[in-house]
Amino acid sequence: MSPGAAAPLIEFREVHKAFDGKPVLRGMNLTVGKGEILFIIGTSGVGKSVTIKHLVGFLRIDTGEIWFDGKRVDQLDEKGFYAVRRRVGMVFQNATLFDSMTLAENVALPLRKHKKLRHTSALAEAMGRLEQVYLTGFSDRYPAELSDGMRTRAALARTLTMDPEVVLFDEPTTGLDPVNARRIDRLILELSRNLGVTAVVVSHDLASIFSIADRVAFLYQGRVHAVGTPAELRDSPDPIVQQFIQGQSSGPMETPGF
């Protein structure tokens, strides 16, 4: 039973978004329940990352509504979104740490801004956060000196400093080796089960989906084409869903350029 059905925390209603006249989201509806791990899957360029970026105000929808914890957020201004960003963290694609700062400084930055800690006390707390993601001893390294998996973990530590209720993951395991990818999966699962954090994960890593997802939303042609538990999707009779899950190059799915 997915926890999503009971208490929707995030809701996208009939969201439309076009870039330079090209529609990407075409009336997308999606709900995310409190505490669940929801995967948004779909082919590249279908609007998965675009969807989650709307929630924290990096992109503005053309029409539709986005609700977070009973409040409409799509009409907020930049200042209004800062309150949302205190509750909703995001781990970007390719980790996106600040190049010019050490790991500890990277993690300390949101502590200084959001929690108003002094530089030294923020650095001290950052050490603890790095320990949580098994990065003790790397605090004075710069991002360029670390592996992709370590950077992703550090980015997760930076996000967790704010004790967010929701964490958005933008392709967290893309480009990682299988061992590191499964470690990230485990961290996401621990977050959800131990701390009750809601996780929205944009991914096309099938191994992640079938090991940790509570629910999966399959995006196709700007809408949620199918949604359900991993098992429901795997057993779905829909030929488009089957083509994606089985990774077949030919089938009914229309992909631009083919």
């Binding site: 990096f58 960003r85 205190r86 970007f92 390719n94 190049d99 801004k113 980015a155 996000t159």
Partner: peptide, 16 residues
């Protein structure tokens, strides 16, 4: 390059 690698967005996420 910070903009295209989303570091500017990461700053915004950090409350900066």
């Amino acid at each position: 390059s910070m903009k295209v690698t989303e570091q500017v967005d990461a700053l915004r996420m950090s409350g900066v």
